[in-house]
Design a protein around this nucleic acid. Structure first.
Lengths: 336, 336
DNA sequence: GTGAAAGCGCTAACAC
DNA sequence: GTGTTAGCGCTTTCAC
C-alpha cells in the first residue's frame, strides 16, 4: 500500500501533525525534524493523498474547462494554452464538451461540483442561465472565456468581438467591397458582437445594412457553412466578399465558392476569424482576425486562480484586442 | 452549505447507513423508506461527495488522458471521442500534455495518482519506461492508445501501423512511383511500424530501400516537415512521391513542394496519415490513411474501464485496421 | 430492514 | 516545537 502520513510519522518518530506541518510549511518545526521527515518522505516515495486534504476544505487543484465542441480547432487551442499554464500553476484540467446543450451543461457542472473541482472556465458559450446564476450566487469560482455576460457579475476575458467584426469589415471595405456577406453562428454572444462591428463599419462607410446578407447557422461545421454559403453565392446580386464568424465557417464558404468555380480572391474575398492553423493550409491562405488566444487562455486561468485563492475578490472583465492578419484570400474588388 | 448524508438521514428519520445503502443500492431497504429517502434527496438537491466516497476506496470516476501535444488535431480528436464515450460511462477526463517529455510524464502520473484517478489512457507515445513498468507492476489500470509495447503486459488499442504504411506505399507503387520519400517522426513506435510496412511494400515490388529517402524529424510540426521536405525535394534525384507519417507532416511537405513550384499531384504525389479534417481543406485534397479514430477512442475507454471495474482481468491488445482514403494529392507517375 | 461504530488520510484547534 | 483530539463525508462490518 501507499504510505500514509502516519507511516511517515512512525518512521520519523513524530506525530502525524508534525509531518503535516512540514508538508504544508506551517507552524514551527526544528530544522532537524524537518530534515528527517523530508528524507523519510523521499525514501518512502510518500505522496500526500489529495483527496483527503481536499476533504478538509483544501483545494483539489483541479479545474474544469467547459467547451462546446472539440472538433473546432480553436477549442483545442484554448485547451492547449489553459492546460499549459495550468501545469505551471499546478492545476489539472478536466475537459468537458457540452455540445452547447443546456442539459449537458447542467449535468457536467453538477458532477464536477461533487468532485470538488476548484472552479470552472467556461469557453465561448453557456446556455444554461439558471445554472450560471446559481454558480455565481454560491460564489463558485468561474471565469468566462471568449464571451461575457454583461448583466452578470462574473469574471471574463474576451477578445473584443465588436472590434474584430469592425476590423474585418473595414478591411473588406477598404478593398472596395460593398456587398459583404456574413456567415455567423446562431445564438452566440460573440456572433452578435461581431455583427454589430460589421454593421458599424458599413454604417461608417455610408452603406446600408442588407439583412439578407447576414446568415446565421446553427450547424457550425464546414459542411453547414458550405450549404449556406451556396445560397449566398447563388443570389442574383451575389456578395463580393464573405466574412466568416470563424475560420471553419469561412473555409466552408471557400469550399462552396470553389465548387461554383468562383475564384478567390479575384471574384470573391473571404475572411475568417480566429486565425487557426487551418488558415495557413488552405489555398489561398485565409485572411483572418487573430485573437491573442494564448493570452486569452492565460488570463482566464489567472482570473480563476485569483478567485480560488481568494486573495482578491474584485472580479474583472478583460477585453483583449484582436489583430487583422491579411493573407491571400482577400483582395481588391475586381469590377467586371 | 451543501447537504451531507447526515442531513438527509435526519430529515428522513433514519441513519446515514440507510441513506448510503439507498444511494448504492445495497442491502435490504423497505420500499417505503427508500422512496422517502429518494424524495428528500431530491428536495435538498443532495449530491454525494465523490471525494469522501473515493476515500473509502471507491472510484473517482475520473481518468487521465496523456497525449504528446494538443496542437496536432489528431489528439484533439482522440480527446473528443474519449470524452464523448466517457460521458456515456460517467467518467470525466483530465487532459495532460506531456510534450513527449519523460519528466513531465512522470510528474503528471505522480500527481494524478495522488488525486486517485481511476486509470490512464496514454496516447501515441510514452517515453518513461520506468514509470510505465511501475504502473503496470502496481496494477494501475492503463490502456495504451495508438501505440503498444510488445514486451510489456499492458492493454492497448492500435491502428495497424504496419498495414497502414504498407497500404500507403502500395498505393503509391500502384501509381507507378518508385522513388518514394517518407517523412516520419523520430522515436515513435508507430513511425517504426509504418516504415516497416513501407519497406515491405517496396520489397514486394522488388525495389530496394534507399535509406536516404527516409527522414525522421524530431519537430513534428508543419514547419519542421517543410524544412526536411525541402531537402528531399532538392536532391538530384528527387522522390516522385512522399509519404508523411501524419497529415501535419504531409502538409508540411505539400507546402515545401508548392514553394518550389512543384505541382501536386502531377509532379509529386503526397499521402498523409490519420485522415484529419485538414485533408479536406488543403489543395489538392490530401490522400491519407484513415484509422478508425472513434473506434480507437471507444476501445481504449472500454479496455480501461474493464480494468477499473475489475470484472475481467484479461488484458487485450486490439489492432484496428486502417483504410486508404484516396483524394487528389496522389496520381499516376508522369514520366518526363 | 436498520443502525452504531470505526475508519479512509488528512488538517486544525488547542494543549503542553 | 510537538502532540492530542476531533472531524471532513462517506462506507462497511456487524449487531440487533
Amino acid at each position: 500500500m501507499k504510505p500514509t502520513i502516519y507511516d511517515i510519522a512512525r518512521e520519523a518518530g513524530v506525530s502525524a501533525t508534525t509531518v503535516s506541518k512540514v508538508i504544508n510549511n506551517k507552524g514551527r518545526i526544528s530544522e532537524k525534524t524537518r530534515k528527517k521527515i523530508m528524507q523519510i518522505m523521499e525514501e518512502l516515495h510518500y505522496q500526500p493523498n489529495v483527496l483527503a486534504s481536499a476533504m478538509k476544505g483544501k483545494s483539489t487543484y483541479t479545474i474544469a474547462l467547459l467547451i462546446p465542441d472539440m472538433a473546432n480547432p480553436i477549442y483545442a487551442q484554448y485547451l492547449k494554452y489553459i492546460e499549459e499554464y495550468g501545469q505551471e500553476l499546478g492545476f489539472n484540467i478536466v475537459m468537458c464538451s457540452t455540445g452547447s446543450d443546456p442539459d449537458k451543461e447542467a449535468k457536467h457542472i453538477a458532477l464536477l461540483r461533487q468532485k470538488r473541482v476548484d472552479g470552472f472556465i467556461i469557453a465561448s458559450i453557456f446556455k444554461n442561465e439558471t445554472v450560471l446564476k446559481q454558480l455565481i450566487q454560491e460564489k463558485v469560482p468561474i471565469a468566462l472565456m471568449a464571451f461575457e455576460r454583461s448583466e452578470l457579475p462574473v469574471a471574463s476575458v474576451t477578445g473584443d468581438d465588436y472590434l474584430g467584426g469592425y476590423l474585418a469589415t473595414e478591411h473588406l471595405l477598404s478593398l472596395g467591397h460593398r456587398r459583404i456577406g456574413i456567415i455567423t453562428e446562431e445564438e452566440t454572444i460573440s456572433g452578435k458582437e461581431r455583427i454589430k462591428g460589421y454593421e458599424k463599419a458599413l454604417l461608417n462607410a455610408g452603406i446600408e445594412v442588407e439583412p439578407s446578407l447576414i446568415v446565421a447557422i446553427n450547424d457550425p461545421t464546414i459542411e453547414g457553412a458550405e450549404k449556406h454559403a451556396r445560397k449566398l453565392l447563388d443570389r442574383e446580386q451575389r456578395p463580393t466578399a464573405i466574412f466568416g464568424y470563424n475560420d471553419v465557417l469561412a473555409i466552408g464558404a471557400m469550399q462552396a465558392a470553389k465548387e461554383r468555380g468562383i475564384i478567390i480572391p479575384d471574384e470573391l474575398s473571404i475572411i475568417g476569424f480566429d486565425n487557426t492553423v487551418m488558415c495557413k493550409i488552405v489555398e489561398p491562405r485565409l485572411s483572418s482576425v487573430a485573437m491573442p488566444i494564448q493570452e486569452l487562455g492565460r488570463k482566464a486561468m489567472e482570473l480563476l486562480v485569483r478567485q480560488i485563492e481568494g486573495n482578491d475578490n474584485t472580479k474583472q472583465r478583460i477585453s483583449l484586442l484582436p489583430e487583422l492578419v491579411i493573407r491571400q484570400s482577400t483582395a481588391i474588388l475586381n469590377e467586371k
